[in-house]
Structures are given as structure tokens and as C-alpha cells.
Design a protein around this nucleic acid. Structure first.
Length: 471
DNA sequence: AAATGATACAACCGCCGGCGT
DNA sequence: TACGCCGGCGGTTGTATCATT
């Protein structure tokens, strides 16, 4: 880990700091009229803070300024202490073990940096967050997925075990607790055009799956490389940013075909044709890729705003249909998803959950979410170019128009796994870490995961589908 | 050697929940 | 119950440093 100039020359306040200390000019200082300093900490300030904590202990950070004369706000003091001054902080680069742990933890927890830090003694949430964001960028640039297959497998197994036991023996207890609240604040996503001639069919609900976790997975890891670190609003705002089209013009990476209720569909895949192209076998990509919208600061999604959609966060979903054997192969660009931006109240049987927002999702949630999403009746693409089922504006809440035959559904579910797309797509989220020479490229591993996946969900999906068709 | 881009890291900001009044 | 304060958390930004051209 590098040492910054500030750390190295800690005893010497920078010229800038001396000449023009950064202060909170906006606030003009605290309630006492004292101007609070901002910017890098000096060693002198560190000393003061350390002394303060020695005397008074941690906490009551707002009192630091009062008692020690340190011109820093409480938040700043807490952060400085937590990230740099507290004892037993481990400095330096992450070890291989730590990196693996982070990957695994992120698969389970999503962007829960503080909780992840709890599993990494001496590491701070900020460090982990920075590491992860850097990793995301790196892999995005390389067009590689985020999670290695073994992580996918373990996460999936953990998920299954959790479901089977109905408990929390695999998933952290607090995580399990998290599954108990309700939060349906994200758009549901319909995956269509997942395969040539295949668009997502309706799936019935999976009663034993946490809808929360599914939601949380929406915009994250599994679904895309879009860092889940973006503010929802901002993400949406930026989602309206423009992406160059092949002809040099710019256009939104996806468009609403119809912004009426229940029929809003967006086509993702900025530089590529917006309509589904049946001939583009590799169109679906789970990972990020060069030129994809996900590369805009790692954030994908652009959209046109409509009155109805303005408040919504639009997820970035990229479902590669990558070959399991090509872990290190940059994923082919393209993606066509449709998103129902209208958040509807979920069926009550859906598990309430902790569902912090989906932006925090990890692989685990992504897996669940994806399966759930596919099983959600409201997630219906209206893509007329596909065989997907559509929802008309009037049937958002209680019914759907099924425009495909049961046979089609059967074929589809059989063909592309319970997740609506090839099981292999899930692995595109997984990636080998070449440096470790681990088993990430082990075909047996990926196959095992695939088998597990298929065998676990297909029957349910089928049952659900058939049941749904009776409606 | 300079310019440019990428990376790593520190720090700030806004939001949210808990808690006390 | 409402309100304000405080601390924690996640997201974002700014900047120093390194690498490449």
C-alpha cells in the first residue's frame, strides 16, 4: 500500500495548508463560530485527537473540538480515528486471503463495507470499499466479470442451504434478519432477448425466495458491473447521460417503448441496436464490457425521463451468455433488457426483508433476485420483437397478458435454466483470479454449479409457470 | 522529459436510524 | 409524537503517485 505524501510528511503541514487552511467555508464554522478545518489531517491534529481519545475514549466526537480545540467536525474526527489512528489498524496491501475474503463477503453481503470490515480485522470499511471499487473498475475495463466461479458456487449453495433450512445457518444471522423487512423500491426487471428467439417467459413466484434479496441483487454484481455505489437518484440522472451510437450521435442506452403503466420497456445496450436481434447469439452479456454503458463510471443505465419514471432508479443489467469455459474472455458487448420501472407492491407472500436498497446487493442477492425477478408477473417485457409476454397498461397489478403458449414457456425454462437465461450466465459474474491460480477455471466447478442451479430451480419454475397459466 | 491516463487512497457529503428530550 | 443531535454508513470526489506514451 502506498503511503501518501501526507503520511510521509506528516509532521510537515503542506504549504497550502499553512497558507490557506481548508476550512468549512460553507458553514462558516460551528455553532461557536469556530471555523472548522477540512482537508488532510496534519500530524499535530492527529496527536490532539489521539490524546483526546486516550483521555475520553471513543465517541462523543462532536465534543472533540470543544475539549481539545481541534478545529475539526465530529464526523471528521471519527473518520480519522477509525480509518487511521485507532490501534491495531493493518496497513499495507490486502493479502491474497483478504482479497478472497472480500470477494466472498461481497458476494454475500453486497456493499456492506462496514460489515465486511468486521470480518477483516485491522481493515477499515473505507479500505475495503476503495479496494472493491478499484477492482470493479479494473475488471470492467478488462471486460471481466466480478466473481470467481467458486464464489458463485458457494454463494449459491449457501442460498440453497438457507432456503432449505429456512434459517440462517449459512447466511449471517443479521443478514437473515435483513430478509425480514420489506422494501420494494426498485424497478423490477424483465430479462428478455436472453437468447436468440428466446425472451423471458412468465414465471410464477417462488414462494420460498426472499424477494428482498432479489431486489437487492438487481443492480449489482450479478446483474451488472455497474458499481452499486451510485446514488439512486444520481444514477438515474446519469442514466440519462448520452451514449454514442455507432453513427456518432448520442442516444440513451435504452429507451422506453412506452411509458405507460405496465408497459414500460427499456432496451439496454447503448452502442448496439436497441431492438433485440435474434441473430446476435452473444448479445447477452453479464459482465461489463468495453463500450458498454456500464463503463460510464461503472454505471449503466440511461434513460429518458418520464413523469412516472423520474423517481425511479434504473438498474443496469447485463446478462452475458458467456461460455463457462471462457472465464477470462472478455464478454461480448450487448444487452437487451427491459425494465419495468414501476414499482408495485409485491405479493404479500413475498418475504419481507432487510432489503437495504438493491444497490447494496451482492451475488447472493443477485442470484435470488434474478430468479425472483423472472418469477414476477409484473416483469414483463413488452418487446414486440421478442416472444416475451407483455403486460398491458391495465393489467399491472392483477393480471397479465400471456402471449406465449405454455409450450413455449416449457421450452424456455428448460432451455435456459430457471433464471431465464442460460445458467452459464451466472458464471460470467464469476471470474478467475489468475494470480492465485485457483480453481476458478475448473470446468468441473462451473458444471457443478450449473447442475446445482438447474436441479434446484427448474421444478419450481415449472410448477409456478403451470400454476400461473391457470390464471 | 513532458503529457496523459490509471490507480490508490484520504476525506467529505448526504442520508438514515437510534436515542434522548 | 415530534424534534434535534449524534454516530454510522455508503457514495462520491479530490489528489498524490505511478505507469505509459
Amino acid at each position: 500500500m502506498r503511503h501518501t505524501k501526507i503520511e510521509i510528511e506528516d509532521n510537515i503541514p503542506s504549504k497550502d495548508q499553512i497558507l490557506s487552511p481548508l476550512v468549512d467555508e460553507d458553514s462558516g464554522g460551528n455553532a461557536n463560530g469556530i471555523v472548522l478545518k477540512k482537508g488532510p489531517w496534519t500530524s499535530a491534529e492527529d496527536e490532539i485527537l489521539i490524546e483526546y481519545v486516550k483521555k475520553h475514549g471513543e465517541g462523543n466526537w462532536n465534543a472533540v473540538q470543544k475539549h481539545s480545540g481541534l478545529s475539526r467536525c465530529g464526523k471528521s474526527c471519527r473518520l480519522r480515528w477509525a480509518n487511521h489512528l485507532r490501534p491495531n489498524l493493518k496497513k499495507g496491501a490486502f493479502t491474497e486471503e483478504e482479497e478472497h475474503l472480500i470477494i466472498e463477503l461481497h458476494a454475500k453481503m453486497g456493499n456492506k463495507w462496514a460489515r465486511m470490515a468486521a470480518h477483516l480485522p485491522g481493515r477499515t470499511d473505507n479500505e475495503i470499499k476503495n479496494y472493491w471499487n478499484t477492482r470493479i473498475k479494473r475488471r470492467q475495463r478488462a471486460g471481466l466479470p466480478l466473481y470467481p466461479p467458486d464464489v458463485c458456487l458457494r454463494t449459491w449453495q449457501a442460498l440453497q442451504q438457507t432456503q432449505d433450512t429456512g434459517g440462517s445457518n449459512v447466511v449471517d444471522k443479521d443478514r437473515h434478519d435483513l430478509l425480514r423487512t420489506n422494501s420494494y423500491d426498485i424497478p423490477d426487471v424483465m430479462f428478455h432477448s436472453l437468447k436468440p428467439n428466446n425472451t423471458l417467459s412468465y414465471m410464477s413466484e417462488l414462494p420460498d425466495i426472499s424477494s428482498c434479496m432479489m431486489k437487492r441483487g438487481l443492480d449489482s454484481s450479478l446483474c451488472s458491473f455497474m458499481p452499486s455505489t451510485m446514488h439512486r437518484q444520481k444514477r438515474f440522472r446519469e442514466s440519462a447521460s448520452l451514449f454514442p451510437s455507432p453513427d456518432g450521435s448520442v442516444k440513451a442506452p435504452y429507451q422506453f417503448e412506452d411509458n405507460s403503466y405496465g408497459q414500460v420497456t427499456q432496451s439496454y445496450g447503448s452502442p448496439f441496436p436497441l431492438e433485440s436481434n435474434p441473430t446476435n447469439k452473444n448479445a447477452m452479456s453479464f459482465g461489463s464490457f468495453e463500450g458498454s454503458h456500464s463503463l460510464t463510471n461503472g454505471n449503466s443505465s440511461a434513460s429518458q425521463h418520464s413523469k412516472e419514471t423520474e423517481k425511479l432508479e434504473l438498474p443496469s443489467l447485463q446478462y452475458p451468455e458467456t461460455d463457462l469455459s471462457s472465464w477470462d474472455t472478455p464478454i461480448q458487448p450487448s444487452i437487451f433488457e427491459s425494465v419495468d420501472p414501476f414499482i408495485q407492491s409485491p405479493p404479500t407472500f413475498m418475504l419481507g426483508s432487510d432489503c437495504p436498497s438493491p444497490r447494496h446487493s451482492g451475488l447472493l442477492e443477485a442470484l435470488i433476485y434474478e430468479s425472483k425477478t423472472l418469477g414476477c408477473p409484473k416483469n414483463h417485457p413488452s418487446d414486440k420483437n421478442s416472444n416475451s409476454y407483455s403486460v398491458t397498461p391495465g393489467d399491472v397489478t392483477d393480471s397479465y397478458n400471456l402471449t406465449a403458449s405454455k409450450t413455449e414457456i416449457d421450452d424456455y425454462t428448460e432451455a435456459i435454466s430457471p433464471f431465464g437465461h442460460s445458467t452459464s450466465s451466472l458464471f460470467s459474474e464469476c471470474t478467475p483470479i489468475s494470480a492465485t491460480g485457483s480453481s476458478y477455471e475448473d470446468p468441473a466447478l462451473t458444471e457443478a454449479f450449473s447442475d446445482t442451479f438447474q436441479s434446484s430451480f427448474s421444478p419450481r419454475f415449472h410448477d409456478g409457470l403451470h400454476q400461473m397459466l391457470k390464471v
